[in-house]
Write a protein that binds this DNA or RNA. Structure first.
Length: 427
DNA sequence: AAGCCGGGGCA
DNA sequence: TGCCCAGGCTT
């Protein structure tokens, strides 16, 4: 037996024994229901165990079977996923559940290619489901496994490269003890999560330290080798909390994001992305810059809704970092002009002047911006505000917009950044 | 191969 | 603050 073979056999045996003694009691380890394993593995993609647990329990409570998930309204599924991130996981999972119902009678099939073909199920997840739920000897190689094996066998391949995952999969399969695929794969990940951690690995408590090549060569700290990700690009955004009035008193204006792309189909505060040449405005907090931002915001929202939206004062600045974008957001409180106007009234009064002066009144309230420079543009702007004022009385909101109160937050899915802002506002 | 897609925990 | 994730999809 070569040294490598000996180290491999030792590794598999000791790790399996360690796991069966040390395994954590996790909600998805209470049964081997493939659906329950599947849901857990999707949630655990790029997400820590402690974060997932409460989501998992709620989700299984609400959607206990593939059939239940398949039947649910999409927005309800998204709401259950709210705050967990990577929301396409939720949509893909539901699409997968529908496929399982239609093609396999609601039972996840004990079939590798069928499982691997489900939406949102890639090489890692299919391996995890096949091994954990069906005890099939498939590799389930995630970042944890790549880290553990890189250290144990002192592998110097860049784990950021797809080819490295493929080669580590081959190694991982060869390590699976007969008849113990599920436990072994979980053992590998459990070791990575509890002992062979990214920063300061707990070698002294590691069940396989004795033959760990990385450790023996004193290189556990520099493994695995991984190229760094690019830093997220900054984006400056300006949002409004628009206070409703009349029938919408106590409510705020929100809108639903497009069907695809970042935070698809989630709800948000209406806001705009500052063009490059305007991005600097966010760093300047002088009244002049504040005013220009407020005007840009008012104009954009008027274009989209035909409402006369008047940013009244600064509310807060906040940051939100996604994996590839860094949002720097300023939020204004805003209200509406032109309420109570009818088309008849507008004609009778000569609405242009009235709307413009209403806008000016807004600027004079205590604590508000000085809208002094508006008066210089008053003549030109008045037509815009006049038509907006009439629109307030006559037009419906575009379909992606809605007025909502605090109670609606319990139904509509919002990404974390807007959840925080709105909770802050209603507090 | 590189970019897109969230969020939280930790030193 | 920067770095790390129990990945998969699109281009």
């Amino acid at each position: 037996m070569t040294k490598m073979e000996e180290a491999s056999q030792y590794f598999s045996q000791e790790l399996l024994t360690w796991y069966r003694r040390q395994r954590r009691d996790l909600p998805w380890r209470l049964s081997r229901d493939p659906y329950r394993i599947w849901v857990s593995e999707i949630m655990l993609q790029q997400t820590r165990v402690d974060t997932v647990i409460p989501y998992y329990n709620r989700f299984m409570d609400k959607f206990p079977t593939a059939a239940a998930l398949a039947e649910a309204p999409e927005e309800e599924v998204l709401k259950c996923w709210e705050g967990l991130g990577y929301y396409s996981r939720a949509r893909n999972l539901q699409a997968g559940a529908r496929e399982v119902v239609l093609k396999y009678g609601g039972m996840v099939p004990d079939d590798k290619s069928a499982v691997a073909g489900l939406k949102g199920v890639g090489p890692y997840t299919s391996g995890a489901i096949m091994s954990i739920a069906f005890n099939r000897p498939e590799p389930a190689v995630d970042g944890n496994v790549m880290r553990v094996l890189s250290r144990y066998f002192c592998l110097e391949d860049d784990i950021a490269k797809p080819a490295t995952r493929v080669s580590i999969e081959k190694l991982a399969v060869s390590l699976i003890p007969d008849g113990a695929a599920g436990d072994f794969n979980q053992a590998l990940m459990e070791l990575g999560a509890l002992v062979c951690t990214p920063k300061s690995p707990g070698c002294l408590t590691c069940p396989v330290m004795e033959h760990c090549k990385g450790r023996l060569e004193g290189r556990e700290g520099e493994l695995p080798i991984k190229t760094k990700a690019k830093p997220p690009r900054p984006e400056q955004r300006v949002a409004a909390i628009v206070l409703g009035s009349g029938a919408n008193a106590g409510k705020v204006l929100v809108r639903r994001r497009p069907d695809t792309g970042l935070l698809a189909q989630m709800w948000e505060l209406p806001h705009l992305l500052l063009a490059k040449d305007k991005a600097g405005l966010l760093d300047e907090s002088m009244p002049k810059e504040q005013q220009e931002l407020a005007e840009l915001l008012g104009k954009l929202l008027h274009d989209e809704t035909s409402l006369l939206i008047r940013p009244r004062r600064w509310f807060l600045d906040t940051d939100h970092v996604f994996s590839h974008i860094h949002w720097k957001m300023r939020v204004y409180l805003a209200d509406l002009g032109g309420e109570g106007l009818t088309a008849e009234k507008a004609e009778a009064y000569g609405i242009a002047a009235e709307a413009a002066s209403g806008y000016m009144d807004a600027g004079r309230a205590e604590g508000d911006f000085a809208f002094g420079s508006i008066s210089g543009e008053r003549a030109g702007a008045s037509d815009l505000y006049a038509s907006a004022a009439i629109a307030v009385a006559e037009r419906e909101l575009p379909k992606e917009y809605a007025w909502i109160g605090p109670e609606d937050m319990d139904v509509l899915p919002f990404p974390n950044i807007f959840l925080r802002i709105l909770r802050d506002f209603w507090e």
